[in-house]
Design a protein around this nucleic acid. Structure first.
Lengths: 214, 214
DNA sequence: CGGCATCCTCTTTGATACTG
DNA sequence: CAGTATCAAAGAGGATGCCG
């Protein structure tokens, strides 16, 4: 992209990461950690493959992404954020907070990936009983299942399934996100097609308490 | 811009404000408050006028900007951020912090506007003696002069000149920003062409103390 | 299969000129 | 002042091909 040519920190940041798709690539690397090219493509539905290659080169040149030959057992290259790239997290967080209120509009036909739950989990969920036994909630949204786990007062999400989850939530991403962030009541969500198996206490333990997701 | 079509808060935020120039328009309205079309054009060197008009329409449609006929004495329309638009400030701040480290590279031939100092003033400067008499520093960078003022422990910048400034700093934007953020020592900056008139204590009172601008 | 490069079309931009 | 109109150039999107 052509530079804005302005001596302003915001303009300079946008010169570096304002290109279309760029911040979404950073999002993928931020929430998933080390990724192969194919992982990135899968996590970025809609991107043209040549564009992904272009952007990765740009990001590498700018010191935001590091490309590495994966350790011996695997014969592939992997991509990960550099320290400078990790410093972009506050930007992703600010965007995620602002964008959160757009998540409860229709949104039909949109692509979804389970690991995208990592962002709202970090931003909006917290363990209100950090000293109690940790809990696990499994999310099933039609995509790859995700686990929500408590640790050190925080809530994290990672791909996987649990043998003894404290709760299992099944439904569309909107409904699951709605109940997680307490934007939607559990009974209301059930009427809309959500399935919740387990103790409601598990959910209440991590839901945002104050102003909610906005 | 075409939507990313992803059910993710970051993608949705970028759908709304990821267009080229959009966040810079928001920056202008955020640091200057109410603006006329011409003010925006002046604060956005390089933008094509049709693009500015397009973006303003988009932003209005999205509820980020409000367009108003100015009160009677003035015969013009003015633009300002809505509440939803004000909520974009954390994004600008995150971008500004990340972009700050790009401000000390060559950067020749870049456009500059004095009011852009408002952002770094808010982000990096603080009054370390909030109970003492407020101070004023005048910045002269070849553009419109700016005043740096202390109030309630914070530091703000606004266009203007002062009769009795505690210090007057004259030089290129890089040099002025360098000494303000303590990235550059005063004597070093003087060797590079900066002029500082007044008490060095004024500068030290507001400079970042800890890790600096990075 | 993973990791691109090419080709082509379509959309967005940038620059400039013009208007109520 | 506050835009619209026009047009060339750049960039994005989509399909496909290549190569270890």
């Amino acid at each position: 992209m052509r530079s804005y040519g302005q001596y302003c920190a915001v303009a300079k940041a946008l010169d570096a990461i304002g290109d279309r798709w760029t911040l979404l690539i950073v999002r993928e690397l931020a929430v998933r950690g080390t990724c192969r090219y194919t992982d990135l493509r899968n996590g970025l539905p809609g991107i043209a493959t040549n564009l992904l290659a272009d952007r990765l080169r740009d990001l590498e040149d700018k010191g935001i992404v590091r490309r590495e030959a994966a350790p011996p057992p695997i014969a592939t290259t992997v991509f990960q954020l550099t320290d400078r790239g990790e410093e972009l997290r506050p930007i992703l967080h600010a965007l995620g907070r602002w964008g959160a209120s757009l998540m409860f509009e229709p949104a039909d036909g949109e692509a979804f990936r389970g690991h995208w739950f990592s962002l709202p989990a970090e931003l909006f969920l917290a363990d209100h009983e950090p000293d109690a036994q940790p809990i696990t909630i499994e999310l099933r949204t039609g995509e790859q299942p995700m686990l929500i786990e408590t640790a050190d007062g925080e809530v994290h999400a990672r791909p996987g399934t649990a043998e003894h989850a404290d709760a299992v939530i099944t439904g569309t991403p909107q409904l699951v996100l709605g109940v997680l962030t307490a934007k939607l009541g559990l009974t209301e969500a059930r009427d809309l097609g959500l399935r919740y198996d387990g103790a409601p206490e598990a959910l209440r333990r991590i839901q945002p308490r104050a102003a909610g997701v906005d």
